[in-house]
Design a protein around this nucleic acid. Structure first.
Lengths: 200, 200
DNA sequence: AAACCGATTGACTGGTCAGTCAGCCAGGGA
DNA sequence: TCCCTGGCTGACTGACCAGTCAATCGGTTT
C-alpha cells in the first residue's frame, strides 16, 4: 500500500524549476524547453502536467497568493490593534520575500505588475487583497484609531503600493536587501503610513 | 521657402498611433503592422523612422520621462516648502495621467512596472526619479520639516509606489477616476505620506 | 507471462511576426 | 523633358516556439 505517488514528484519538480527560470529570464523569454531542461525532464512532460505554459505560471501565482490572502484576512479578523494588523500584513509580505525571493519576484513582476498581460486574469484576486486591507483601515476609522478623512480604499492602495515598490527595489537591486533591512522595512512601512513624515 | 518638412509629420503620426495601440493591446501583443495600420501608413515606413519595434516604445518613454524628471528636479530646486515640493511632484504625475492617460498607461505598464523585460534598459532613468524625490525628503529632514528616523530613500520609494499604485488603479478601473478624484488624490497622497493615518 | 496503463520521451508541425529589400512615385532641379 | 532623390510601399523570408502525438518504458494486475 501507500505508493500511488512516484518517489519524486515530477510535477513539483517542474513548478520549482519554473520559478527559477521565470525569475531568471522572465516569463516571456523562457521557452517551455527551458523549464523542462531546468527540471531535468522531457519537454512533453510539462504538457502532461499542465495544459499550457500559462497554466504553470497560473499555478505558481495561485498557490502563493491564496496564502497571502489568507494572512491578510486573518489579520483583519484578529483582535490585535489596527496598527498591529497593518504590521502583520507588511510583515507577512516582507517575510514571503525574505524566504522565497524568486517566487515573489515572479509573482510581482509577471502577475501583480503585469496587469495588462497575464495579471488581467487575476485582477479579482489581486483586488481582494486591496479590499481586505481597506477593510482593516475602515475598522480603524470606526474605532477612532485612524483619522476619517482619508478614504480607506485610497489608504489601502497607498500602503500596498509602498510595499510592492519596496519589494521591486529589492528585486532589482535598487536598495539594499539585508536581513536588517527587511526588519526595518516592516516597522518603517507602518510608521510611515500611520504616523507620516512630519514630526509630532 | 520654408518647406523641408512634409505637411504631415509621419513620424509623429506613427508615435501617436503606437500610443493608442500599445495602450489598447499591450506592447507584446501588438504587431508592427497594427501600428502601421492605426497610423494609416505602410508597414515599412515604421522601419524607415525607427530601428525596431522596441525603439518606438523607447522613444515614447524617453520623451515623457524626461519631462517628469525635469519637473521633479525643478520642484527639488524650488523655494517652496518641502511639503509643497512633494505636492508639486504628485500633482505633475497625476496631471500627466489626466491629460494623457493612454501615454501614461503605456509608460507605467510597459516600462516602469516591467523592469524585467523592457524597463530593464531604463532602470537608471527610473532610478533618477526616486533619487530626486529622496533628495527632497532629505532636504526636509535637514530643515526640520520632516522627522529624521525615516530613511529618505525609503520614504521616496513609498511615496512613488503609492502614486504608481494609484495610477494603476485608475488604469485598470479598480478605483473611480473622475476629475475630482484626481484633485483629491494629489492632496491625499501628500496628506498620507506627511501626516499619516493616525489622528494628531 | 501477457495484457494493461499511466508516466515519460522528443521529433515534428503549424502559425506567427520582426525585420528586409527591391522597387515605386512625386516633385524639384537642370 | 528627363533625371534624381528620398519618402514611401508591402510582399517576402528566416527564425522562433508553443503545443501535438505516436512511440517507449516500467510497474502492476490477472
Amino acid at each position: 500500500m501507500a505508493s500511488k505517488a512516484p518517489p519524486i514528484d515530477k510535477r513539483r519538480q517542474i513548478l520549482d524549476a519554473a520559478i527559477r527560470v521565470f525569475a531568471r529570464q522572465g516569463f516571456h523569454s523562457t521557452r517551455v524547453s527551458d523549464i523542462a531542461d531546468e527540471a531535468g525532464v522531457a519537454y512533453g512532460l510539462v504538457y502532461h502536467y499542465f495544459k499550457s505554459k500559462d497554466e504553470v505560471l497560473n499555478e505558481l501565482f495561485t498557490e502563493r497568493w491564496s496564502l497571502l490572502l489568507a494572512a491578510i484576512e486573518e489579520a483583519d479578523r484578529s483582535e490585535a490593534t489596527d496598527r498591529a494588523k497593518l504590521e502583520a500584513v507588511a510583515g507577512f509580505i516582507v517575510d514571503s520575500y525574505r524566504h522565497d525571493p524568486e517566487l515573489m519576484k515572479v509573482i510581482i513582476v509577471e502577475v501583480t505588475r503585469a496587469a495588462n498581460s497575464f495579471g488581467r486574469t487575476h485582477l479579482p484576486e489581486i483586488r481582494r487583497a486591496y479590499d481586505s486591507i481597506a477593510s482593516i483601515v475602515a475598522a480603524g476609522q470606526e474605532g477612532g484609531a485612524f483619522r476619517k478623512d482619508i478614504d480607506p480604499t485610497f489608504a489601502s492602495m497607498s500602503f500596498y503600493g509602498a510595499i510592492e515598490q519596496l519589494l521591486s527595489g529589492w528585486i532589482f537591486d535598487l536598495i539594499p536587501a539585508s536581513d536588517s533591512d527587511f526588519d526595518q522595512a516592516k516597522t518603517l512601512l507602518v510608521a510611515t503610513i500611520c504616523d507620516g513624515l512630519e514630526p509630532r
